[in-house]
Design a protein around this nucleic acid. Structure first.
Length: 597
RNA sequence: GAUCCCAUAGCUCAGCUGGAUAGAGCAACGGUUUUCUAAACCGUAGGCCUUUGGUUCGAAUCCAAAUGGGAUCACCA
């Protein structure tokens, strides 16, 4: 039982003994740094029970706790706030018992909940941009956090590899590509395909403009433009399985996959399974029949199937076209059912931007109405858009920040900064470039993940991402100092590692040391909270706080230079623990920490 | 027209399950290095927590409205 649970339990006892009150739960908070103490109980809520002044109530509870809990060294009362001072002995004992494991990926019990995390879900007509980067980093990190919190996690990707937008780049390449390939163009496959997607749009817009000069309405021009007609025909051929179209489709998608693989590899994300919409888009018919049989869905005169959600404050939603073909939501219904049948998940997390809030609301509601109990386990991890100073990114208007370019720039900046500081000249070129990658990508990942996923975030390309302050390089820097110090200590005298801290006098514990131990004490709770809220930002901000505390400690406190071995060894052990925790928490964000920098 | 989301320092963000004097980083200004990695540390300055009303012993936090910003409401995905 940890100290918070003990406090809660004894406080409930205190209220019963002192005032005869039955209370189910009380909550403590960390004492405000301006006051003496570790935990604070706000007693205003108990005045009805005590029928006494706040100060008296607080004092009486304080006295009860002090005499019934050996961990409490002292207490003080300020107005209605009861500040409890936990004894140094408790913190030191806790630290001694803390056998911090090397990483959080402990064996997961066989009966652990199965959680599927879907993320990335790219279109195969253009390269990934900053918006996708946020999606990928979030999905990957949330999956890792869920693992650390004791879940069986399956990372999954749903690739949008078909549809009219895919045909656009295909047609453009066919018309104007002259057989260009990624090799001949010396270009990543996804970028090459993206080039033709943009090219299509350019020609298409020209056609539309031309038709408008011939007195077509804008709407008509968009529909009648020759390229639009060709595209529709191509899509139809694709659906009919036309050999030539399919071959072109497979070739160009192949290019894109090769490109994506590279991007994923450098980004450091991965998947346990991948679904392709070209396979899943026909799914869902089963569900349609089921819904019709249950009377949840209805049929219109033209044979299209829909559900009336107006009683739920939503609209009518079409689920199947009149010609019997699937729409987006049909496929999602089918894919959800298929996944449930295949992996029997307890939870399925969809990492998708908040522009699709309505879609997922409808999707979950429909599954619920169909009586699928498992639909309660579905969750839309809805994240905010990444905006540029001039607004939202738009692929077609070219106002996107390309993922590959951005990562390259980050690595280049990291390289320049590292060279300038010149602290790692003993590394080989290979080691150096690996280090630049770790620092540059770490900075980018941290920059994105430290923001609450639910909120939109702003990225200003003109201002480069910081390497100082609340950043990954700062956190890494503290880790590296610890590593360096420990290496020195060990090469001088390795015995410290085997020395327990049992002889260390609690009276020597510095306030900062107590704070650091208290911080380590709350790591597990933070991980659980981050898992419950699907929020890597909580991990990021906690890790920064820890690193900052440590940085101050490191600055103010002699460690290697401490003369008394007992104290020196304790400080080394404390530093080592902080280092391990930093490493583990950063890994949950998908960030690697270097040994030198 | 309807629904949903957002508003905290010059900028980017924490804090939001109600609690004490609202915190970081960047940018600005000043200081710290013969001593464990200065990508650091310390200090100064910077706030009507968009506004108004309500609930409460107590509101940045909960509720309502207003204002401003964003998104969504396809037989598109």
């Amino acid at each position: 039982m940890n100290i918070e649970q003990k406090l809660t339990e004894k406080t409930i006892d205190a209220l019963k003994t002192l005032y005869g009150g039955e209370v189910n739960t009380v909550s403590f908070e960390k004492t405000n740094p301006d006051f003496a103490g570790d935990y604070t109980l706000v007693v205003f809520n108990f005045l009805k029970l005590s029928k006494k002044k706040p100060e008296d109530t607080a004092r009486e509870i304080g006295e009860y706790l002090k005499s019934n809990l050996s961990e409490i060294a002292d207490f003080n009362v300020v107005k209605g706030f009861l500040n409890l001072v936990i004894s140094d002995v408790y913190w030191l004992d806790y630290f001694n018992s803390l056998q911090r494991k090397e990483n959080f990926n402990q064996p997961i019990p066989a009966n652990a909940p199965v959680v599927m995390v879907e993320y990335s879900s790219p279109n195969t007509n253009k390269p990934l941009h900053l918006g996708h980067v946020r999606n990928n980093l979030l999905g990957y990190s949330v999956a890792e956090i869920l693992k650390a919190a004791g879940n069986k996690v399956i990372k999954t990707n749903l690739v949008n590899d078909r549809g009219i937008h895919i045909c656009k780049s295909m047609l453009a390449w066919q018309k104007w590509g002259n057989g260009e390939t990624p090799e001949s163009a010396n270009m990543k496959g996804d970028h090459l395909v993206g080039k033709y997607y943009v090219l299509f749009d350019k020609h298409y817009k020209a056609e539309v403009a031309h038709l408008i000069t011939k007195n077509y309405s804008e709407e008509d021009a968009e529909k009648k433009a020759p390229l639009m007609l060709e595209i529709k025909e191509m899509l139809l051929k694709w659906e009919q399985g036309d050999k030539a179209v399919r071959a072109l489709w497979e070739m160009m998608n192949g290019w894109v996959y090769k490109g994506f693989e590279k991007t994923y590899a450098i980004m450091g994300v991965n998947f346990d399974s991948t679904y392709y919409e070209s396979n899943t888009y026909v799914l869902g018919k089963e569900i349609i029949d089921d819904g019709l049989a249950k009377g949840v869905f209805k049929t219109r005169a033209d044979k299209s199937v829909f559900i009336d959600l107006t009683p739920d404050g939503l609209d009518e939603k079409t689920l199947l076209r009149g010609d019997g073909t699937s729409v987006y939501i049909t496929q999602d219904l089918g894919t959800a059912l298929k996944r449930q049948q295949e992996v029997n998940f307890d939870k399925l997390i969809y990492t998708v931007g908040n522009e699709q809030d309505y879609h997922f609301k409808v999707l979950f509601l429909i599954l619920n109405k169909l009586g699928y109990i498992w639909s309660k386990g579905l969750h839309h991890l809805s994240y905010g858009m990444v905006e540029l100073p001039e607004g939202k990114m738009k692929s077609r208007e070219g106002t996107v920040v390309d993922a590959d370019d951005l990562m390259d720039e980050m690595i280049a900046t990291a390289a320049a900064t590292t060279e300038e500081l010149g602290k790692v000249n003993d590394l080989t070129e290979t080691e150096k470039s690996e280090l630049h990658k770790i620092i540059g990508l770490g900075a980018l990942k941290y920059f994105i993940l430290k923001v609450d996923p639910k909120k939109k975030m702003l990225f200003n390309p003109a201002e480069s991402i910081d390497f100082n302050g609340n950043t990954a390089p700062f956190i890494m820097f503290n880790y590296v100092r610890i590593r360096s110090m420990i290496a020195k200590a060990t090469s001088a005298d390795a015995t410290w590692q085997n020395t327990a801290n049992t002889n260390f006098a609690a009276s020597c514990l510095l306030p900062k040391e107590k704070e650091l131990i208290s911080k380590l004490h709350s790591v597990d709770a933070i991980i659980q909270q981050a898992a419950a809220e699907f929020s890597p930002a909580l991990i990021a901000n906690f890790t920064y706080d820890l690193a900052k505390e440590y940085s101050q400690y490191y600055h103010d406190t002699p460690i290697l230079k401490e003369e008394h071995n007992e104290i020196k060894f304790f400080r080394l052990h404390l530093s080592k623990s902080v280092g391990l925790v930093i490493k583990e928490l950063m890994n949950l964000l998908g960030i690697i920490v270097p040994d030198k920098m």
